[in-house]
Simulated scan of single mutants.
Amino acid sequence: MGRMSSSTSPTETPDTPAGPARITWHHAPEARLVLALGHGAGGGIEARDLAALAAALPPLGVTVARVEQPWRVAGRKVAPAPKTLDTAWRALWPALARRGLPVVAGGRSAGARVACRTGADLGAHAVLALSFPLHPPGRPERSRDGELLSTGLPTLVVQGGADPFGRPEEFPGGDFELLEVAYADHGFAVPKRAPLSQEDALVTLTEGVATWLGRLGNAR
């Protein structure tokens, strides 16, 4: 199953066919849900949106698990193929679900795609897609909307208003909710000239996710 540390934010290293993954836990005192968050292809769990959710949600009864894919744990700089990402996520899922709590599958960018593709088969409670990469920048004809529209689960997309991988108005209609973070880019950074601060943008994100999670309840 892997090892568990005893630090303030304990970590666990479950084995997967792609190598060891790493889960950093942010425990809620009286947890009602677990939110699992995978990272993108260009960065790790230190991303501002993942860090903000890990700080904001545990006091609200949501344990957050920030998940590092094996390629990041191994120190590689390039993400593997989607199939390999999905295989690793499936293999570490039992470590996320063993507490017996509903688990929301989530992630940013490539991690959001993994959550969308695998959530239903793994028995996830819902899907949280942060900065879903609807298409490559400048290539709207290469849409990935099929992944988003086929989750089969309650789904929330949180998207920056200026995300080059898909602005909110580019998303198709479908059985999902969409929360816009105005002026934000793919990493939820906002320009200095924007009429809201970086802190304001992250508050919009965390409060929106918290409200959505609250509406989900505990029913599977």
Score class of each variant (00 low, 15 high):
residue 95 A to H: 12
residue 100 G to F: 05
residue 90 R to C: 11
residue 83 K to R: 15
residue 78 V to P: 12
residue 101 L to R: 08
residue 108 R to C: 13
residue 96 L to K: 01
residue 100 G to K: 03
residue 99 R to I: 09
residue 107 G to V: 05
residue 89 W to N: 10
residue 97 A to S: 09
residue 97 A to F: 07
residue 94 P to V: 09
residue 98 R to E: 12
residue 91 A to I: 01
residue 107 G to H: 03
residue 94 P to R: 07
residue 102 P to T: 02
residue 79 A to C: 09
residue 98 R to Q: 11
residue 83 K to D: 15
residue 79 A to K: 08
residue 84 T to L: 13
residue 105 A to W: 02
residue 96 L to I: 02
residue 97 A to H: 05
residue 92 L to Q: 14
residue 100 G to C: 01
residue 80 P to T: 03
residue 81 A to K: 12
residue 104 V to L: 05
residue 100 G to R: 02
residue 87 T to H: 12
residue 101 L to D: 09
residue 79 A to S: 14
residue 91 A to Q: 02
residue 95 A to P: 07
residue 94 P to A: 09
residue 102 P to V: 04
residue 97 A to C: 10
residue 103 V to K: 03
residue 90 R to Q: 11
residue 89 W to K: 04
residue 101 L to G: 06
residue 91 A to E: 01
residue 87 T to I: 15
residue 108 R to S: 15
residue 105 A to Y: 03
residue 102 P to W: 01
residue 99 R to M: 13
residue 104 V to G: 03
residue 104 V to M: 05
residue 93 W to F: 08
residue 104 V to I: 10
residue 108 R to M: 15
residue 90 R to G: 10
residue 101 L to Q: 11
residue 95 A to K: 09
residue 103 V to D: 05
residue 100 G to T: 01
residue 79 A to E: 06
residue 93 W to Q: 02
residue 83 K to G: 14
residue 92 L to K: 09
residue 86 D to E: 11
residue 81 A to E: 15
residue 89 W to V: 12
residue 96 L to F: 01
residue 105 A to C: 07
residue 95 A to T: 13
residue 85 L to E: 10
residue 80 P to K: 04
residue 82 P to V: 00
residue 88 A to E: 00
residue 94 P to W: 10
residue 104 V to C: 07
residue 88 A to K: 00
residue 80 P to I: 02
residue 94 P to E: 07
residue 84 T to C: 11
residue 82 P to W: 00
residue 94 P to L: 07
residue 91 A to K: 00
residue 81 A to F: 15
residue 85 L to K: 05
residue 79 A to D: 07
residue 102 P to Q: 03
residue 106 G to N: 08
residue 80 P to Q: 04
residue 81 A to W: 13
residue 101 L to Y: 08
residue 92 L to H: 11
residue 98 R to P: 05
residue 92 L to N: 06
residue 101 L to N: 06
residue 101 L to T: 09
residue 106 G to C: 06
residue 88 A to W: 00
